[in-house]
């Protein structure tokens, strides 16, 4: 599933490690989500959305 995570992270000048620490996941998880190799669970998707103050649909896009 495509997503805007990399763009949103760059807008805040966060590294993958910064975002990983905020989400309490590994940097590898952030990288896998950003590169569309892994779709996060609904709870993690909500945590990501909450962190950026957006809805899930604003971050994760239909293929």
């Amino acid at each position: 599933m495509k997503n805007r995570l990399k763009v949103l992270r760059a807008e805040r000048d966060w590294s993958q490690q910064d975002l990983a620490e905020r989400l309490q996941v590994s940097r590898q998880s952030v990288n896998a989500i950003e590169t569309d190799k892994y779709d996060p669970s609904l709870p993690l998707a909500f945590r990501i959305a909450d962190l950026f103050g957006l809805s899930i649909e604003d971050i994760f896009l239909k293929d």
Binding site: Q24, V25, S26, Q28, S29, I33, Y38, P40, L44
Partner: peptide, 8 residues
């Protein structure tokens, strides 16, 4: 494991 990606 708390990290769902690593768990997968």
């Amino acid at each position: 494991l708390g990290d769902e990606y690593v768990r997968m």
